[in-house]
Design a protein around this nucleic acid. Sequence first.
DNA 1: AGCGCATATACGTGTCAAGGAATATTTAGA
DNA 2: TCTAAATATTCCTTGACACGTATATGCGCT
Lengths: 133, 133
Amino acid sequence: MESVFEIIAEPNRRAILSLLISSEQSVGEIERQLRMTQPAVSKHLRVLREAGFVESIVDAQRRLYRLKPGPFQEVDAWLAQFRRFWSAHVDALERHLDRMEHHPSTPRNSTSSKRNTKKTTRPNRERDKGEAK
Amino acid sequence: MESVFEIIAEPNRRAILSLLISSEQSVGEIERQLRMTQPAVSKHLRVLREAGFVESIVDAQRRLYRLKPGPFQEVDAWLAQFRRFWSAHVDALERHLDRMEHHPSTPRNSTSSKRNTKKTTRPNRERDKGEAK
DNA sequence: AGCGCATATACGTGTCAAGGAATATTTAGA
DNA sequence: TCTAAATATTCCTTGACACGTATATGCGCT
């Protein structure tokens, strides 16, 4: 349980995070809205807090939890690797935005390489689409 | 193993995906670069393929795997919920210095009408920062 | 047909995390 | 100090999954 990806892999934790978007919430409020047991909520919140997704604010007997941005950016940074790749694909379907990130040095022919010149003397190279089962 | 988040929670799978950014690769190439056993690579690729992260192309005895954009966009869509939140907070509190607490930009007492006006005659409510342990 | 290479699958095993029940801790108020 | 409320933590069980070894399948070559 170290990486941020393992943290957000848990559905209940994602639900908690989504809940906290609107506003900070106490453990009891989360418990009721998500219909989970109180220890479950507390344990998930502990994981989220130690990973930096949320922070807790003491308010009398209750603790109010609110989002913290750090780990989200970490996920976003990982995703950024692939964003250029997929936006090239989406472009074909529906070009939408991605005007914001000008990568002036983006290699246009990124997919072309010499990997295909792999000459294993294959006589019949038709490259069928897989996806079998 | 249904959600895309569980798929990318596995470090080796993320490594495979990162490898495939540069170009499509065969199982053997992935196996050598990541120093994993061949069955491990195949099994991870199967998971990735069934989740739509990659597709396979039959090339003689080998299969070339390449990225597919769909699931990445799904992750991005989830992350988008939080993006607005963190981009608003990033510049202001990147510094992590405890701020006096007034809510200048939280006029939204939508659901919590009397939540904060709980005033149980608490004498000393200064809202300490939690993060114990 | 038979061999060899590349990849896929089956099986058994160990680890780890999520869940529930019970209990501990904290805090406010009488 | 005692009680009640809110939350945290501990113990235990269970199930999922990643891994390795061994084996199966697919494909091209001679």
